[in-house]
Amino acid sequence: MSIEVRDLSFRYGKIVALDGVTMRLGEGAVGLLGPNGAGKSTLLRILLGFLVPERGGGKVLDYDIRREQAMIRRSVGYMPESDCFVAGMDAVTFTSYFGELSGMPRQEAMKRAHEVLFYVGLGEARYRLLDTYSAGMKQRLKLAQALVHDPKILFLDEPTSNLDPNGRSEILELIRDVSTNKSIQVILSSHILDDIESICASVVILKQGRLAAEGRMEDLRAIHYSLYELRIKGDGGPFRRDLEAMGCRVDETEDRLIKVYMPEAGDRMDIFRAAARTGVQLRYFVKSRTSLEDLFAGVVGVD
């Protein structure tokens, strides 16, 4: 396991940010999900060695998160969410600079900076001043500085924010390539569920500082509930209440599509029985493949 934490707890004053989180993350790309205040950033801060947990502990690449923070930082790459650069530098100097600060020899860092800048698509612009870079270029640059020292784990915080659709798909392609072909583990924290769904094989969902769900996406979809989509004719109120009384979560989209999240133990025939009891006609019924959005809504309880 590359990341392993147990009973991880942290609080900012009286506010509990993490409360007894225990998890093990293996190879591949892992999505870190959760609503605002769920504890994602605190978890990343602890994994990067920025914060010392109040209780519990863990290891990142076999380095203790309490005692070997410098070793962790040397072995991981971090791409922050906000724009960050050093004014007055060009991309080559910037990237090699952070390579050097990670412990690379100066000449090696410079050579490597050229390579990663070509890799992220900034080869032609590598001698331009960073102050003149567009949002998409800055995003690529952040990825380049995170990759320059060839980390074993890459922490990406909202890597596609502020990007146009083309830029977003290119960054996602890079991340996918890094995580699948280059044996670099990616921990991706994002609010864009599509990004996580398209890249990550497994996901960690945090809710109010606690671990709400963790595991392979396929397993999570299967374990928690079945999703049915239906359209009805008639008064939906009693029908909905009936389903909720059976333990189902019921959501209705703007185009009046009803999504029923049925518990694992439930029987789909119960939906038909409820419809008969409440006098509504079922005009459309299909068992849907749960998207990450559905999973997120089901686990965290928000749309």
Partner: peptide, 27 residues
Amino acid sequence: MATVREKGYSHWDGKLGERRFPWWPIT
């Protein structure tokens, strides 16, 4: 802008060292 992965990504085969003066590149 150049296309993505124009030259591909390769692992660095060097070893990250502990600098005697880690602040020197900043200076």
